[in-house]
Every structure is written in structure tokens, then in C-alpha cells.
């Protein structure tokens, strides 16, 4: 029997505190993935009055099975690495909020972060490290059938597709990993890829090639997911001939990449065409005192180790910004 224990969740030295609306924070970090947590450690060590708002400590790392490219660990599972990150942050007294997400930001000498429950937090700087989330296909039937055959987490939901037929949409690392997890249990897996080849790492493509119950549809896209209460079929278009055909299936796993969690900042900050926040080499956005780090930004290559480095940079940049502000 396996146990994915997060001992850090229960750490006795819990020093997370509640936010107070009357307090003026030096910095508030939005997001607690690798970038946000690293920023938190740097800010606390610099002695800043710091707050951290997040949906999930660990961000995408918490949903990752194994990590083999974060230096210091030849192999570590996602839960364990998050635990270690959390422990390092929790040695400090930091204000923490995980129940209510951020709704919007207001810029000014003193900045305001409005939470969805209506609370308004005041801070001199903001570090946005809100990461990314799974992208949806945005086709008919998708949202209605979530949890009824449409899925985004293969390690969570693969057990419900034992001896069934499933489609995996996307030929990048997450798509091929999902196809591997599903090929172990499903009767048949069809991987649909928009391009004419898979873009996943070779090591994963080779692993998937070992399964005999997997077929591939290159240069095809899904245009609709059909079904009454549950997924029954998918409409699939050949990108060259534009012909659409219907395929029977029990499930559709959508793994077409990620979108930045940046909508709460869209009125305030400049973004690229992918809605990633534009930052310079100092993690500085187009607004003074607002910094961004990690997967939510335009910085190329989304990796844990890069996000950590960016988080550190954003924290140091925020610190030096604060030092250069006139004393009140």
C-alpha cells in the first residue's frame, strides 16, 4: 500500500496567521507554488511584513507525481517537495489566506487587493505568482460533461476508465503522460494531436510506444463532445481534409496545456497574447511596486527550478523598491 503523506500539513510550528484589513503589509504574494513560496522565504528573511494568498500550497507541483529535474533530488514526488517548501516558509510568521481567492487589484502608492469575499487588504508592493491552470478546449459539451467523462487529471480519474475507451487530447508531456496512465487500465486509448508529431520528451514517447492499446490521430482536432448524462462520442475533424467524423468513447482527457491565472490583473497590467504578465529582468511589471514571477509571467520555459529563481528575484526587487521609497 502506498501513502502520499504530507507531514508538513500538520507541522506543529504552524506560524500561518490571519490577514488583517487594518494592517499595511510591505508585500503580499499572490500564489504559493514554487515562485510564491520562494518569494515568501526571501521576503521574510529580509524582514518584510509579508502575506501570502493562495488556493493551494504547492501549485502545480502538488499535482505532479514525480520530479526528476529539481537539483538536489534525483527523484522526489510532488507532495514531498511541496512539504519541504512549506516547512521552509513556515518557520516564519506569515499572514496566510486560502479560502477566498483574489478578485481584483487597485494600484496606488498603497495598493489594494480585493478578495472575493469582499475583504480589502492593503500593501506597499505585490508579487504575483499565481501560476497556471489547465486549459479547456472551449468546445460544445465540454463543460457540461466535466466529471461525466470529461476529465483533466489522469492520475485522479484513470481508475474510472478500466476496460473503457478513452481519448486523450494533446501530444505534449502532460498528454503523453496521461495516455500512459490510461493505457495501463483502459481497453483503448486514442491520442489526438493537432500537429503532425508529438511534442513530449522522447523518454515519454518511447514509454507510450510500448503499449499495444494506443492509437494516434495526428493533425486532428476535437470539435464537440457529445452525450446525454455521460460522454458517448466525440466529433473529430481532420485538419487537412476538414472532414468531421464521430467516434464512440467513454471519456475525454483534455491535456492541451495551461493558461495563466492572471484575469484578476487584466485591467492593470500589460500582458502578452497568451495573457502572461509581461515582466523585465527584475520581475517588474508595467506598474511600480507590482512584480510578477513564475509561470504566470512571460518568462520563457515553465519549470519548477526557474519559477523558484524568479520568485527570489521578485522578492529582492520588491525589497529594493521599498528601500527606495520615501519614508512617511
Amino acid at each position: 500500500m502506498e501513502f502520499n503523506l504530507s507531514a508538513g500539513l500538520f507541522s506543529e510550528g504552524q506560524k500561518f496567521e490571519s490577514f488583517h484589513e487594518q494592517t499595511l503589509y510591505d508585500t503580499i504574494i499572490i500564489g504559493a507554488g514554487p515562485a510564491g513560496l520562494t518569494a515568501a522565504v526571501y521576503c521574510m528573511r529580509k524582514g518584510l511584513k509579508t502575506g501570502l494568498i493562495t488556493k493551494q500550497v504547492g501549485g502545480q507541483v502538488a499535482d505532479t507525481a514525480g520530479i526528476e529535474n529539481y537539483l538536489g533530488y534525483r527523484y522526489i514526488n510532488g507532495t514531498e517537495l511541496v512539504d519541504k517548501f512549506r516547512e521552509q516558509v513556515m518557520q516564519f510568521s506569515i499572514a496566510f489566506e486560502s479560502e477566498s481567492p483574489v478578485q481584483s487589484l487597485q494600484d496606488g502608492q498603497i495598493k489594494e487587493i480585493v478578495l472575493e469575499d469582499g475583504r480589502c487588504l492593503k500593501t506597499r508592493t505585490i508579487i504575483i505568482a499565481s501560476g497556471k491552470q489547465s486549459k479547456q478546449l472551449n468546445i460544445p459539451g465540454e463543460v457540461r460533461l466535466i466529471g461525466h467523462g470529461v476529465a483533466y487529471c489522469a492520475i485522479c480519474d484513470a481508475p474510472f476508465f478500466v476496460n473503457k475507451k478513452v481519448f486523450v487530447v494533446g501530444g505534449g508531456n502532460s498528454g503523453v503522460e496521461a495516455a500512459i496512465d490510461l493505457a495501463k487500465v483502459a481497453e483503448h486509448v486514442t491520442l489526438i494531436q493537432r500537429r503532425d508529431h508529438l511534442t513530449a520528451d522522447k523518454i515519454l514517447i518511447d514509454k507510450l510506444a510500448d503499449f499495444e492499446n494506443v492509437s494516434y490521430l495526428f493533425e486532428h482536432i476535437v470539435t464537440e463532445i457529445k452525450g446525454g448524462n455521460d460522454v458517448e462520442s466525440v466529433m473529430i475533424q481532420n485538419k487537412k481534409s476538414l472532414l468531421i467524423s464521430e467516434y464512440q468513447t467513454d471519456g475525454v482527457f483534455v491535456q492541451i496545456g495551461l493558461i495563466p491565472n492572471s484575469s484578476f490583473a487584466e485591467k492593470l497590467l500589460d500582458m502578452n497574447k497568451y495573457n502572461e504578465i509581461l515582466v523585465d529582468g527584475y520581475c517588474q511589471t508595467n506598474r511600480d511596486g507590482i512584480f510578477a514571477a513564475g509561470d504566470v509571467t512571460s518568462v520563457p520555459y515553465k519549470q519548477i527550478i526557474i519559477a523558484c529563481g524568479e520568485g527570489a528575484k521578485a522578492a529582492l526587487a520588491a525589497t529594493s523598491y521599498l528601500l527606495n521609497q520615501p519614508k512617511e
Binding site: 502506498e2 499535482d63 487529471c153 492520475i155 485522479c156 480519474d157 481508475p159
Partner: peptide
Amino acid sequence: VSLGCPHC
């Protein structure tokens, strides 16, 4: 729940 589900 399923036992491999981190959000569960």
C-alpha cells in the same frame, strides 16, 4: 475519492 487524487 480515488487514492491517487491529490485534491481529494
